[in-house]
């Protein structure tokens, strides 16, 4: 009976958590498109979240592109099809790895930051202070952060796509003696706007998920530094799982289009 009760309790808590995230998503999106717009705050958040994540996104994409090219070259050589390396590396990066890796890495970094910041505000009663001064915490704190991610994450994804392809091209030059011009020509001939669009559209969905999950956990943090720490860990795990789950369904949906 105890086990059943605990399972019920756990399931109920998860359902409530999911319900809370869905409701926060709705309110955050509604406030993102209705005035007043906190343009200054959005710009500040883009600077603090996006600009400071550029080196992280670029470094990860550079080496991921290079590793992908190494593995692809190794596989293609078996079939004598090395010349297809540009298309394979380019398409995999732009459609899949660029947006997903950027969301995982930047999401972990930025999401943890949002939860820690809002969580600290929550446990020190600053969120209650905002409410008691007649301000709306979702409009003041959540929507600008989601906007910043919706603008910043696709830009970081484009940066990751570019540096990833560059990493792949370097490997193709050194391992397969391919000319850079030849590599880029083959890639651009095969790459379509739809590929780029599907990758960037994914990153917009990831951005909303990252922003809302991180804010939700922050706003619900209780119990001092310990509570903020737990909320931050929950955010990193939840963002990783959510990004991968959303990615599966979006990939399926985009392939059907």
């Amino acid at each position: 009976m105890l086990l059943v009760e605990r399972l019920y309790d756990l399931t109920w808590r998860r359902v409530r958590h999911l319900g809370g995230v869905v409701l926060l998503t709705r309110s955050a999106l509604a406030r993102m498109v209705t005035p007043p717009f906190a343009v200054g705050e959005v710009v500040r958040q883009i600077e603090s979240m996006g600009v400071r994540s550029t080196s992280l996104a670029a470094t990860i994409a550079l080496f991921s592109g290079a590793v992908l090219a190494l593995q692809t070259a190794f596989t293609l050589e078996r079939f004598g099809a090395e010349l297809f390396i540009a298309e394979m590396v380019g398409l995999a990066l732009v459609r899949e790895l660029g947006p997903v890796l950027t969301a995982l890495m930047v999401g972990g970094r930025v999401g943890a930051g949002i939860t820690a910041e809002l969580g600290t505000m929550s446990v020190s009663e600053q969120i209650d202070a905002l409410r008691s001064l007649g301000a709306d915490p979702v409009r003041k704190l959540v929507s600008p952060r989601v906007w910043a991610l919706v603008i910043g994450l696709p830009l970081l994804t484009m940066l990751a796509d570019t540096t990833g392809v560059f990493g792949g091209m370097l490997v193709a030059m050194w391992e397969l003696d391919l000319e850079p011009g030849f590599f880029m020509q083959r890639l651009l001939r095969r790459l379509e706007y739809g590929d780029l669009f599907s990758g960037l559209a994914k990153s917009v969905f990831f951005a909303v998920a990252i922003g809302v999950i991180a804010a939700y956990n922050g706003l619900r943090a209780r119990g001092g530094a310990d509570g903020v720490g737990r909320a931050t860990t929950d955010t990193v795990v939840a963002i990783a799982i959510t990004v991968l789950v959303i990615d599966f369904f979006l990939t399926k949906a985009f392939l059907l289009l």
Partner: peptide, 23 residues
């Protein structure tokens, strides 16, 4: 609801135990 409470909160001030200033 929260939106309707704004008009009350403009007239009722709350001073928090730990001050709750925005850091």
């Amino acid at each position: 609801d929260e939106a309707a409470l704004v008009s009350v909160r403009r007239r009722v001030s709350y001073i928090f135990q730990n001050s709750a200033l925005f850091d």
